[in-house]
Amino acid sequence: MRISSFKKYFQVAKTSWSGGFVYRLNFVMWRVRNVVQLIAIYFLWFAVMSRNPTAFNYSTSQMLTYILGTSIIRALVFGQRSIDAQGEISSGDLNNYLVKPISYFRYWFSRDIADKLLNILFSIGEITILLFWLRPEIYLQTNPLMLVSFLLASLLAMVMYFYFSFLISMTTFWIPEENGWPQRFFIFVILEFFSGGLFPLDILPPAVYAVLGKLPSAYFLNTPLQIYLGRLDLSQIVTSLFMMAFWIVVLRLLANRTFRKGLKIYGAYGR
């Protein structure tokens, strides 16, 4: 990317950041929702694990670390503003970008990055408070190779989810009703479970895990956290990272093609 191009998208992120602070109430509510959900799941698993120190092949500290870890990875992977693209496609505000020398994908990616940063900051703050309050046993990964793999997997999950989510947004070209929310909501609900947001996926019956674990959704939360917990061996880690890279290429291609196709039928509504 050229320097001027970088400046362009840096400015987008900066403007988005200042816009984010304007929606203070909205943001705070969103964070509160996250924390309440996290605490609910935490206590559920705390109750389960206090009866049996190991369950489903997880130690208490592993399970609780997984649950608390989802909060930070969730902020990194799922934190986004780019769902607003749906509204723009549906209302015709997409026009504003199509007439400018700017890539719609990079525009939203920049805004997402800004949003993720804000969310991660808050998430880390929340977790710190929870750690002081609940004082749970925490699993600390010390192997540098695992830590680097965990970081890499988290970043790949973030990029992968961006293209996946954008692909969902693109359906609004064909189903513009309700700003594309019916299809988005459907995905949200499924994803919560399929990505490992409620519990690690490998506690499921092996037959079910064999399927769910292979779906792209498993890479969003489950895989990075499994790597952190040291539950994958090196060959599994390498395979996972390659699969994520593969999915990024596929999803990116699909999102791009769908966008171009969508533009051809785009009515540039609004009158």
Binding site: K7, K8, T15, S18, D93, K100, P101
Partner: peptide, 22 residues
């Protein structure tokens, strides 16, 4: 239609457009 960012002062959109159009 508007291109100005609804929740920010107009100056922010001007600066953003400056970068977009280089």
């Amino acid at each position: 239609k508007n291109q100005l960012w609804w929740d920010l002062p107009p100056m922010e959109t001007f600066i953003l457009n400056k970068e977009i159009y280089e």
